[in-house]
Design a binder for these strands. Structure first.
Lengths: 213, 213
DNA sequence: TATTGTGAAGCCTTTCACAGCA
DNA sequence: TGCTGTGAAAGGCTTCACAATA
């Protein structure tokens, strides 16, 4: 732990973005990117780009720029995503089902290795089977057992909002390390568990604010 | 426009969060919330909460706190979401279909009034029909016409990443005002169009960074 | 008395400007 | 020459501490 000195949170957020942009450049067969070109793609200042990287090392070549592939790998290592992360999805409705087959997770080494619902039989009949059922849907009662057996570290919540906190508690009890909550009700967990609440409406709210003001 | 003075971007982001927390409190029949209680739920400093609101007016009662319902309405007005916003979803795969029936959008006055795909016939046979088809799936060629006819202001992109920029260009051409991109490829648009790229993996990347470091 | 609203201080982040280097 | 890496300056945000007040 504490592999790096104190890094601005905003820098960490931007790293993910740089990564997506670099993958894009790689797909276009671009080998090199300058801080200026990355900055323009990501809507930030070029000095910001250089400073963000400089927290972690000297990744660039003066007079040249950054090697796209190398920089990509460096960012992955910084973020800790240069290895597989095993994930459980809880709540296999429409959104949960969509995530089970979401292609970008696979590409990024995020592996959904278990799926849970309160009513797996119904779910299989309704949605998941039609999507090719990438993982078996299990009853929520088996959460703790399966999280341990399959070495799952992250839980994604895609239940209705009324169930979200209950599921979060179950995940904590199952010794999960981190929770990503897609349901529209904020969930809490003890301080040693990292929680991210991702509200779809927040992205729209933000957009709308800047459209209005 | 410019209804308010210069507000920190972070404040706008937090307002959405306060709103979700207030809705939660309202569901629990809480009538009043103090800056301290909101702060603890939202993991911010109490002075921060008060300052965030103070940019826009005096919403609280000294010695008492904030009236949950009033504060909720004030935030909605600030964000500009105290009216209906009409939305088109482009790309009706698993994620697009899930958004078409996403309940929290309805609750928040976000109305998906059109859905587009390159192959509406196939989509209807595959996914959307099974979800009760809340809106008719139209061919992407009709985008511009339908955006105008239905007074659509926001476009959501849920296509595969290779198509995302093309769709963004079509939305711009259709005189959309804002774009929310759910595909994992960043899209760009002229400065007068507001764009938000929402990458699911970014939320995981962030979580993983703090799990690792 | 309890809690808001807020000026001022402190801290953190961004940007500038240029030295350093391939 | 051109672009990175970085110290210093500028700017912005958060927190403190307390006056205001229901």
């Amino acid at each position: 732990m504490a592999k790096y000195p104190k890094i601005p949170e905003a820098t960490i957020r931007r790293l993910s973005n740089y990564l997506k942009c670099l993958e894009n450049l790689e797909n276009k067969n671009e080998k090199v990117a300058s801080s200026a070109s990355l900055a323009s793609i990501c809507n930030v200042n070029a000095a910001q780009v250089r400073k963000d990287f400089a927290y972690f090392g000297e990744f660039g070549i003066r007079g040249m720029g950054y090697n796209v592939k190398e920089l990509k790998n460096n960012i992955k290592e910084i973020l800790g995503i240069n290895r597989e992360w095993r994930i459980a999805v809880v709540g296999i409705g429409n959104m949960g089902s969509a995530l089970l087959v979401y292609k970008d997770f696979l590409k990024q080494n995020y592996r959904i290795v278990a799926a849970f619902d309160i009513d797996p039989v119904k779910v299989i009949g309704n949605i998941s089977e039609r999507m090719g059922r990438p993982v078996e849907i299990l009853h929520i009662d088996r959460l703790k057992e399966v999280v341990a057996a399959r070495k799952i570290e992250i839980g994604i919540i895609t239940t209705p909002p009324q169930e979200a906190q209950k599921v979060a508690d179950l995940l904590v009890n199952a010794n999960i390390k981190g929770i990503l909550n897609f349901s529209p009700a904020p969930v809490r967990a003890p301080d040693n568990i990292k929680v991210r609440n991702l509200f779809f409406t927040s992205a729209l709210d933000n957009l709308v604010y800047y459209l209005t003001n």
